[in-house]
Amino acid sequence: MELILEMFSHTFIVRAMIVGLLVSLCAALLGVSLVLKRYAMIGTGLSHVGFAAMAIAGVIDMAELTLALPVVVAAAFLLLRVSDSSKIKGDSAVALISTGSLAIGVIVVSLTTGLTLHICNVMFGSIFAMTQATVQLSVVLSIVVIVLFVLFYKQLFAVTYDETFARATGTKTWIYKTLLALLTAVTVVLGMQMMGALLIASLTLFPALTAMRLCKRFLSVVIMAAVIGVSCFFVGMVFSFQFDLPPGASVVGVNLVIFSVFSAIGFFKNGGLA
């Protein structure tokens, strides 16, 4: 308890906590649809595009979010396009775009500043990443993501569960798929600053997959994922503060433990090997 009180006496931790909890919530909510719709790779792909954008922003001395947000949103549209239609299959297209942009980011950085602390922070995240202005923007955007998710919950369910049926009965499914990609893009960019480009995708994957070990209804998966996402972030941050670990890795570590516990419970609940 004292530890937690001490943590919250630091302004930078309070900021990181507020943004992190909101972003974890967004990521967990969207993650359920991403995982079930086999779009999980999109989160990873977008975070690598985000890495390139942030690296370039650092070099040309531009505010990171101002550059990364539009670039990643554009990449989200592109990823949806190619994964749905083109001759290159979805997962290969995502791998192509993500490694491609990673390479561009590395080239730009090597030609200019070299691998500095800034780049290290972009890759693995930093608790000091939050300035007053980014906190405000992040809070507003996260709330927008959560509100849109709730308002379009039934469309997102329908499109995730059975896109063909939804389209056949007159729902414009591309609107909601685009919405999903767009919200994911925003969440990835916001979360990247603290979690790091290499780890942010796990915030969308772990809570959803963990919840699915035990929950059998869509709504309960969504609620359980939200609870898991938020609590794992909180615990992860406490560990990060206590043992001086990078916040991203610490949060993912907690998620990993919870996932294992849930998997084990699910395994025995379903009768083990029998």
């Binding site: 369910f157 569960y161 929950c215 998966v221």
Partner: peptide, 11 residues
């Protein structure tokens, strides 16, 4: 897919 019968029908 984790969804209840009711959730599927209502959709």
């Amino acid at each position: 897919f984790p969804a209840s019968v009711y959730e599927v029908v209502l959709s």
